[in-house]
Computed example of a mutant assay.
Amino acid sequence: MAMELNVEVAAIKAIVMQESQGHPFLENGLPPILYERRHFFELVAKKRAKVEQSPSGLKRKGSGNKQSQHQNPYPDFPDLCFPHGDNYGPDGLHQYEKLVRAANLDLEISLMACSWGGFQILGEYYSSGCATIFEFVNKFISGTDGQAEIFIAFMKNMKPDGVKGLQARNWEKVADSYSGSIWRTKNPDYASNLAKYYDQFK
């Protein structure tokens, strides 16, 4: 991975430590996941809007407007589908339990709404290196090589600024690219943690 991205091994290890505490697999062999109900909500809303706008879609009066797009499509499952706020719950198998429940609502979107593996890459970005979300998930489950392959493609195709940040050891640039600017309020230690872990492994 370091050779492919022209970065230091310690820089990649820093990301794994920050994202998954250095554990790309759970004790039972599954990759760690984080189910994110906000992303499930957003992806379902986009899917429904796309169907409504398609020529074959049954377009009702008022469908596709902002009000309908912001209504919760699964109001009976606020822990699985909600427009804002984090309600992750415990790590480990609890996250898979949420995924299984969400899969009963929409399988593909439930997989896309999870962050996967040691690098915690959101399934929504599966197209960075895979044809389908199922290929993406299978590679994460398959082993270390699969996770490495996805990470390289993700960084090259979707996070080039993050690669530049890793090369320059500019941890704030890495954080901005990898986690979005929200890290500054949601997780203000993100960049300093990367620097700390880098120094630890260097």
Score class of each variant (00 low, 15 high):
R37P: 00
G89R: 01
A103S: 11
A49N: 12
R38W: 06
G85M: 00
S110V: 01
F40T: 12
A45I: 03
L111R: 03
F82Q: 02
H39Q: 14
Y96H: 03
P31R: 14
C81V: 04
I33V: 08
G92I: 01
I33A: 13
D91T: 06
L80G: 04
L58N: 10
H39T: 14
H84M: 09
F40M: 15
Y96D: 02
L80C: 05
K98Y: 05
H70L: 11
P73W: 02
D79T: 06
D91L: 04
G57M: 06
K50F: 06
P75D: 08
R48V: 10
L58S: 09
N28I: 12
H70D: 06
K50A: 15
N65G: 09
P83K: 08
R37F: 03
L111T: 02
L99I: 01
P90Y: 04
L105G: 07
N87C: 05
K61S: 10
S54M: 04
A102G: 02
N65C: 05
F82W: 06
D91C: 00
D86F: 09
S56D: 09
S63W: 11
H70E: 13
F77G: 01
A103C: 07
L43E: 15
G29L: 10
N104A: 12
N104E: 10
L30W: 10
A45P: 02
A49M: 06
Q71W: 02
F77H: 13
R37L: 00
R60V: 07
R38D: 12
S68Q: 08
G92C: 03
N72S: 11
S68G: 00
L34K: 08
A49D: 14
F82L: 04
P75E: 09
P55I: 02
L30K: 13
H70K: 13
K66Y: 05
G85W: 05
I109Q: 09
L30Q: 12
N72Y: 05
G92F: 07
A45H: 07
R101D: 08
E36V: 04
Q71R: 06
N104Q: 11
D76M: 01
V44I: 15
F41V: 11
Q53F: 13
D79H: 03
I33R: 05
P32Y: 15
R60L: 13
P73D: 06
R37Y: 07
I109G: 07
Y74A: 04
S56A: 12
G64R: 03
Q67A: 10
P78F: 02
I109W: 08
F41N: 14
H84Q: 12
L34H: 08
E108F: 01
P32N: 12
Q71A: 09
L93I: 15
D106Y: 04
A102R: 01
H39E: 11
Q69F: 06
K46S: 14
P75L: 07
L107M: 10
Q71M: 10
Y88L: 02
L43T: 12
L93S: 13
D106K: 03
S63L: 06
